[in-house]
Every structure is written in structure tokens, then in C-alpha cells.
Amino acid sequence: MAIVLIYFHTDDSLHDFKLFTRKLYPSRFESGSRVEYSEETQRLFLVQSREVPTSSLSLFDYTPELCPFDHGDYYSSNNSIPGSSNCCCFNKHQPVKLESYFQLCPCHKLCLTLDSHAAACAAHELALSRIFRKKFIKYAKSIAGMDSSFENVDSSDEIGIIWIPFVIEIKLEYPKQKIDYSWFYRIQSLIILKLKSEEAMALLSTLGGGFSALGDYYERHSLEAGKIALRQLKIALTICDPLIAARCYLYVALSLMQRGYLRESKDIIRKQYSFAKGHFIKDYRLIAMCKGLWARLKFMYYLQKLERQGIPCNVQHGILSNFCLNYNVCNILQPTNGQDESIIQMRVGAS
């Protein structure tokens, strides 16, 4: 049986309520019930809803809200409504929902006024901790007087009364806003640093992308792209963003790959791929970048193998332009020197 009710409200609405047993275990009202707060009377009401078949409805249960039609001519002396087959609300296959109102009246009551922020924390802890409930009730009794008056009880016959032994009413107060200027200045400096870093990263990414594209043709451009990637890495470490730092490492790996340092590039790609797979934030774009660079690295190793075997080959935009008709390669068109890659057709067959 519930004997403790704690509810939080403002002047016009009920925000939350907690119901507990004698030993302060959580309890609740019957299913299908709800609690409403009356702004005019400042009282709590329990609304119980039930569905009844239309065949059992009587004149006592009937209210005009059940049907838009007037049934005054059908009332009979035996408290029933004849002619129900002509009424939309007396379809036997559609039960009618009725509501009963009960006023929740406290035997003993405590009234508190709390800051909205503190009240939200208290409501959260009341729902979780039984120890906190005991200490909260003890604290409420120590700072608020006990009220056992019954002046606010509605004695109307139309509304039932449910007595609750102990009620704590908590009225929410709008919190006093205090500006924390020291914290504001710290956050402001971090935001400005973040915005400037993002702007610098965007500019360096555009510039580095151009140098990296030319790095397939000229080694000095590839070297310059690597220097730009190191600058981006420094910015990423300054703003403590590990995902952006991982991308910068991949840019460095691409620069090393273009200049022939395949083993160093392979170590960087492996480390960054392992980091991207194990990070709690799954950056699928970073994983795709690792896979793309790994595919290019395999191709570069393949070209290195061909050169060791004495097969002349040239790479422009990652496409073979000169190749002999050996080693599983046939039907290759004339070299295009990287000007029209779409017409290159390569078919790998059995040797």
C-alpha cells in the first residue's frame, strides 16, 4: 500500500510525482490511471479510466459527451436507453471509455520550495536510491513544518476521496542565473582556436591536394605535399583531434609512397587502420582512406616487382602506360601518357 507521495509542480502544471510504500519502495497507482493537477483549486486528482460494454450502460453512466445526438426522448424509468441500435455510441462492438475522478488528500503534508535544477536532481535520485529517499524525507521534516489540516478537501459527492498518509509538496522555483565569466573566457578561447584551426586545415587541405596530385609526376611536389601534411598534423595535435591526426598521417604516407619509401608508408597505413578500427568513434571515411592507400601500395609493390624482372613500366596517375605483352597481360592499347585514361583496357588471363 502506498503511503508516501512526493510531487513536483509549478503554479500551473504538475511536472513529476513519486509514490512509495511504507518501507520506501517504489509503488504506483492502478494501470490506466493518471494524476492531474488543478491550477484553480491547487489540488491533486487521480483519474481512473475504464472501458465498459455499451450493453451495460445505464442512465447514470451516460453523459452528453459520449454521443453528439440527443437521447433525451429515449430515457425510460428503468435507467436504460431504449433505441440504442440507432445510436452511434451504443455499438456493442465498441466499448465506451468512462473516467472517474478522485481527490488525493494528505493526512500529513510538508511543503517545500526548491530550485528547479536541484529539484530535477532530487527527482532523479528519488527514483534510484532508497537511502536517498530516507535522508530526503528526514531533511524535509527538519526544515518544514507538518501540516495536518483538512481545509483543502473537496467534500462533493461527485468526487471520491483517496487519503494518503504522508505527502511532500515541492513547488519549483525558477533558478537564479549566474554567469560564470571565468569558465566563459576559457570556453571562448577554445572555440576561437577550434574555428581558426578548421579554417587553416581547410586551406592546407586544398593546397596539399594540389601538390599531391602533381606528386605523381614531380618529386618536389610530392615532398611539398608531405611538408603540408606535417603542418596539418601539428594543428590536429594542437586541437587534440585524433581522427584528423590519423588522416594527416595518411597524407604523409601517400607522400612517402610517391617518393618510393614503400616500407615506411606501409607501417603508417597499418598503424592508422588499426587505430581507426579500434576507436570508439567509427570514422568509416578514415577506414576507406586506409583501404584505398593500401590498394595503391600493393600496386606500387607490383610495379617494383616488374622493374626488378626487367620489364619497363611507367606510372602516370596510377595507370600503367607502357607494358610488354608478357606476365598475364594482353590486349593493351597504345600508351596515352596519362592524357586519356578511359580508353586503356587491360585484360588479365592465363599465361
Rank of each mutant, 00 (worst) to 15 (best):
L207Q: 11
I143S: 09
A229V: 05
I269L: 06
Y251Q: 13
P175S: 14
I162E: 14
I228D: 00
I192M: 06
L214Q: 12
K234T: 11
Q177W: 09
L214F: 15
R220M: 11
I131W: 04
E199K: 07
Y218M: 08
T206S: 03
I162Q: 14
I187V: 12
P242M: 06
C240W: 08
A200W: 00
G145T: 09
L214T: 01
I162Y: 15
P165C: 06
G160S: 09
I164P: 02
S156Q: 13
E224I: 06
L207W: 02
E219T: 10
I269C: 06
G215I: 04
S142K: 10
S149I: 07
L193V: 08
S197N: 05
L190Y: 10
R133D: 00
L250T: 05
D267N: 06
F166Y: 15
G208Q: 07
L230M: 10
W183Y: 09
I170P: 01
M257F: 04
F136A: 01
F211G: 00
K271D: 07
D241W: 01
W183E: 12
F132V: 00
Y139M: 05
L128A: 04
L250G: 02
Q232K: 13
S142W: 03
S189C: 07
D241H: 12
F136E: 00
Y181D: 07
F150N: 15
S156C: 14
S142V: 04
G160C: 05
I228G: 00
K234R: 14
L204H: 03
I143A: 05
K266R: 09
I187A: 09
V153F: 15
L237P: 00
I239K: 09
D157F: 06
G209Q: 14
Y174C: 08
E219F: 08
T238V: 10
A144N: 07
E224V: 08
I191S: 11
R133N: 01
P175K: 08
A140L: 03
L126D: 00
I235S: 04
Y139F: 11
R263Q: 09
S189V: 06
P242E: 13
E173S: 11
I228S: 01
I164S: 08
Y249D: 08
F184A: 11
E158P: 01
Y249G: 03
E158S: 12
Y218W: 14
I269E: 00
E125Y: 04
M257W: 04
D180G: 04
R270G: 03
K178L: 08
K141R: 11
Y217T: 10
W183V: 02
E173I: 05
G160P: 06
Y185D: 12
I164L: 15
L128K: 06
S155T: 15
K134D: 03
R220N: 15
S148P: 04
L128I: 07
Y218F: 14
R270F: 05
E151R: 11
K135R: 10
E219L: 07
L262F: 10
K227E: 13
E125A: 05
A200F: 00
C248S: 12
K171F: 12
F166N: 14
R263K: 09
I162H: 14
A127W: 04
A246V: 05
I159T: 15
G160L: 07
T206M: 00
Y217L: 11
K171E: 14
S212W: 02
